[in-house]
Design a protein around this nucleic acid. Sequence first.
DNA 1: TGGGGATTT
Length: 735
Amino acid sequence: MSILAKKIPLFNSPAKSSKPHPKKKKPAYVEVNSDDNLNGRKKRPLTGNTNATNYTKQPQAQSTPPRKKQRLANALDVLQEQRRQLPIAKGKEALVREIREHDVTVLLGETGSGKTTQIPQYLLEAGLADSGMIGITQPRKVAAISLAQRVSSEQGTPLGGLVGYAVRFDDVCGPDTRIRYMTDGMLTQELLGDPLLSRYKVIIVDEAHERTLRTDLLLANLKRILKARNGGTDGKGKRKEGNPLKVVIMSATLDAEKFSDFFYNAKIIYVKGRQHPVKIHHCVQGQTDYVDAAMRTFFQIHVDQPPGDVLIFLPGQEDIESLQKSIERLANQLPPNHSTVLVVPIYAALQTNATKAISIPAPRGVRKCILATNIAETSITIPGVRYVIDTGKSKENRFLTGSAGGGFETLLTRDITKSSAMQRAGRAGREGPGYCYRLYTEEAFTAMAPTAEPEILRCNLTQSILQLLCLGQDIQELDLMDAPDVDTVSSALRTLFILGALDSHRELTPIGRKMAAFPLNPVHARALIASKEHACTAEVLDIISVLEASSTLFVDVADKRTAIADARRKFIHPAGDHLTVLNASRAYQAVGGSDEDEKVDKISRSARKEWALAHFVNERTLREAASIRKQLQQRCDREGIDWRVSCGEREEPVLLSLAYGLSQNTALITPDGSYKQTIGQAVVKIHPSSSMADVKVPAIMYDELVYTNQIYARGVSSINKSFFATIGALNRREA
DNA sequence: TGGGGATTT
C-alpha cells in the first residue's frame, strides 16, 4: 500500500458502503446515444444465417432437418419474447400512428430502447413501406451489419432476404429485401443514380446527433426530396400524388429540437431506454496531469472496490502507452492479497484486432483495465465494465484553410463535450449498476459545450463538393442544418481548380467528372488519372490504396523503435515515403504467392500475418488496401484505364503522376535547411515518422500537413524541381 | 522527433 499512501486520493472515500443509486432515485445521467447493446453478445445469433462470415449474396433455400427446425422455432419464440420486453414495445401503436400521420418524425431514444431494430419492423408490419423499401442509415459499417443480422434473425429470415444491409464492398440485399440497413455514405451515393430515392418509402436516419458530414448532406437532400415527393413537408402542404416519403430522424436528446426546427417543427417523440444507473463522481479539484490522476484513481478503485473491469478514456496512443507502463509497474508492487491487473490498450492504429482481446473475460481474480481512446465511445462495445475513469480529454481534428496551400489539419488535445462525457459514463452501466470517476470538477462539466460541432464545420470539403457538383448541387445553395465556412468552401474550390476538376466558371471539367467516378480523395483521383498517361497505373493504384485505408501502414510503438527501424530498412526507398509504401505493400503481396485470383489459402494467410507482425506493418491496413484496390480496379475498367500497366523499376513516372495530385502540397528547401511551401507561406517540418525526416533534398511533395506542436508534413517524397513547378499549370491546361 | 474516430455507385 505504500505506493498509494504517498498520494492524496482524488476522490473522497469512494465508499465501500456507497451503493449505486437505488432504483427510485434516477441517476444523474443516462446514456442516450446508441443502442448497440441490442446486438451485444448476450443475445447470441440464433441461426447460421446471422453469422457475419457465413452469408451468401443470395438467400439460401435451406432444407432444414425437423429437429433443427424445432430448435429454430423455439429460438424464434425466445426472440419474439425479447422483442415484446423492450421498452419501445409498449408504445408501438402510438409510434406507428405518429409516423403514419407525419411526413417527418424526430425520435429521441435512449440506449436500450430498441428503436433502431424495432421501428423498421413495426413500420413494415403496419404497411407503411407499401410495396417499397425501408432504409435505415448508420454512420458506421459495423453497426449497419450487426443491426441487419439481429433484425433478420428476429424476422426468422436469412440475411439478404427480407432484411439486408449495404456497406462499401458489401451489399447483402436481394429481390425480397424490404428493410435495408446501410451506411449514410451508401445512401448519399444512391442519390447519383436516383435523385429522389424513389425506391424507399421510409428513410430512417439513425445517430443523427453525431452530425457526420455524410449525415448532414443526406438530411439536406431528404428535405429536398420531401418537397419533390410530398409537396408539403409537415403533412400540411399540398399533397402530391404518387410516391410520398416518410422520414424518421433518430437522435440523442441534447439537440433534438434542432432537427425538428430543420424539418419545419417536426413532431418529437421520446422513447425511454433501459440502462443501469451509473453513479458519477467528480473531482474536487481540477487535474493538470490527467495520466497520473487516472493512474491514482485506478489503484484507488482496484484496492477499495469490488471486482469489475475498469475502462479509462484517454486522448491518444502516447498517453495509453505511458499509462499502461506505469499501471503494470505499480500493480507488480502490490501486496499479493490483491488481485492481479490485466491492462488492455485499445486504439484504432493498433495492429492486432483489439475487439478480440476485449471480449475475452478476465479470469477469476484478475481485474481487467482497458485503456481506450474515444474508439470505445461509439465504435466498440466493451462488456464487463463496471468502472469508468474519464480524463475529460480527447483529440480533435480540425481543418484549417488559411494560406497554406491546400490547408492543414490540426490535431490537438481538447476538453470533451457534455454529450461525450455522458456517453463515456454510460459505458459503465451496460450490464449492471456502475461508477464513473471524472477527473474534472462538476463546474468543468457544466462548462463543457453540449455537443460537438458538426463535422461539416470542421473538415476538408473538397471531395464532398466534387460529389455534389456531380449531382448538380452547389454546397452554398444547399439547405443544410449548418452552412460550412466560406473559407473552407473557397479553399476546396481552389483545390479542385488547381487539380483541373473545375474550370474558371466553376463548371465541372471532363477530368473532374472522371475524378468523381472514383471513391477517392480528389488528390488521389487526380494522381490515378495521371498514371494512365505516364503508364504506371499498377504502381499508383498500389500506393493510393494504402493511403486511402483508414489506418496507417507502419506500426509505431514507442519502446520498440530500434527494432522497427531495423525491420523497415529494407523497404525504404531513397525517393521517400510513397515508394517506401509501394515496396512494403508489394513485399506483403508476394508472401504466400500473388493474390490476384483471390485464392490466398489458409497457409498463405497465416504466413502473411506472421510476416506483417515481424515487419511492424499493420496487416489490417493492407487487407483494407486490397479491398480498395480491387474496387478501384473495377472502376478503372469502366473508365477505360488499364490498371495492369506497370512502369517496372522506373520511379520517375510514379512520382510525376502523384505530383499531379499533390501539386498544392509541395515545398522547397531554404538556405537554413527548413522547407517552405510553394503555395502559401508556412514553414513545414518533415514528420519524424517519415523516411525523409533526416534527409535534405531540394524539393518535396507530401500527402498532408498536420499541426500538433509544429506544422508537420506527412507522407513525404523527394521531387524533381524541374517538373513540379509547372505541374499546377499542367493540370489546368489539360482540363 | 510523434496521428482521436468514422466513411465512399
